[in-house]
Design a protein around this nucleic acid. Structure first.
Lengths: 228, 228
DNA sequence: CTATGATTCAAACGAACGTATGAATCATAG
DNA sequence: CTATGATTCATACGTTCGTTTGAATCATAG
């Protein structure tokens, strides 16, 4: 067996693909770019992964498997600590989004590159990758849905679902667009070098997410179907 | 002059491109798809717009010119009403995001299709479209930055910039992913047909954004990023 | 009417795409 | 050592891409 070479090639391809998909998107990245950056032969992707689509799936699976297991572990710990009582919203937000953001510090799990890829992919999904993500995410989503319902019994379930949606968006965008914001807005954030930025982003985003999650319920327009 | 034919062809191309870019992204949409859906000759795009990139820019300019002028008008009205006093955060959020969301009801200005395109593009921008958006958006962004600083004098400017960023993300995602969420999460929102959904989305999103904007400032913990 | 400029059309261009092939090269087992 | 299976390699296949071209068709002015 010659596994050393194989594994090495596979990893180099996955790393290059992760970075290029992050920077240019799935459609915008060619096999020749990937194999060129990975310093492997053009045919290596099809040999090791079968197709470009399978490569994309493997790029995600490599990171998401760990992330979603970690999310489950965090929730397990919080629930054990709570001993049957509902969790606090801050704990749930930390379990889902905090776990995600903490990946950025760990280069072993993709670091910022994968986070940016994930953020961008959640809004630009090709059909096949959406189907794949739905399957990968379903168990962890169901679990978090339930603990959120328990934690906020007075909030309508539909409202919670929407707010989770909004939180996902704010997080994806914050991660994906760390540079994009500066480009679009031309705003200067006077402090902070880039190593510093992530450490400060996490508590900032957490405050924002919790503020949104616990905001007063909206009052519908008087003309709406729902009478007050 | 034969303008009737020309204008008609241009508009049909823009409409088809808007819809297809929204559905499949810029890279994922071909000229042949666009001209096919618009029922015009393949060469028509290059004749009327010069290139695919120029077409994309024109798709955005057609809508953004009106949107950003409207945002300015709304702010003018609020400032006149306030008579020199700082605006309320809810007014600023309404001027920027409310104006955007109200576009969805007006098919004259692209409706939901353009909103979804904009939402997705803000996280998947090709380099050229980012540069273009930065230029198009700069004046309105500068204006809103200033009124936000005035409205929240006790909040550090860097904090405000980040929270505006988060609001943009939540909004983009909410718009772009009206269907994506259901796919990724497999959640059911029991009520609401699709015509209803937008009317309810607006107040829901507004509550969330304002809750996040006015959330307590994060406390930095120099030693630990992990809140608990 | 004819003349003219704007627009549409069918057809083709070279380039780049994802993928497939078969020979060359490698690491290891016997 | 040789034999064997895994991996790498150069190369080519068939498609599709964005763009270009020059002739055909149109609407209008004189």
């Amino acid at each position: 067996m010659a596994e050393a070479r194989t594994v090495d090639t596979r990893e180099r391809i996955l790393d290059a693909a992760e970075r290029l998909f992050m920077a240019h998107g799935y459609e915008g990245t060619s096999m020749r770019q990937i194999t060129g950056e990975a310093n492997v032969n053009l045919a290596a992707v099809n040999y090791h992964f079968g197709s470009k689509e399978s490569l994309m799936q493997e790029v995600f699976r490599r990171r998401l498997d760990w992330l979603n297991e970690e999310r489950m572990r965090v929730l397990d710990a919080y629930e054990k600590e709570a001993g049957g009582n509902p969790l606090k919203p801050s704990q749930i937000v930390d379990g889902f989004f905090g776990t995600l953001l903490r990946m950025a510090d760990e280069d072993d799990h993709g670091g910022m590159t994968f986070l940016r890829l994930l953020g961008r992919t959640l809004t630009e999904p090709s059909e096949f990758i959406r189907t794949f993500l739905a399957h990968e995410y379903k168990p962890v989503m169901d679990r978090y849905k339930e603990v959120l319902f328990r934690a906020l019994p007075e909030v309508p379930k539909a409202e919670i679902v929407w707010r989770f949606h909004f939180m996902l968006g704010a997080t994806s965008y914050a991660i994906a667009g760390t540079d994009a914001l500066r480009l679009v807005t031309d705003w200067q954030i006077e402090e902070e070098d880039s190593t510093d930025r992530l450490d400060r982003l996490v508590p900032r985003l957490m405050s924002f997410l919790l503020g949104g999650l616990r905001a007063p319920l909206p009052q519908f327009d008087p003309s709406a179907v729902n009478p007050k």
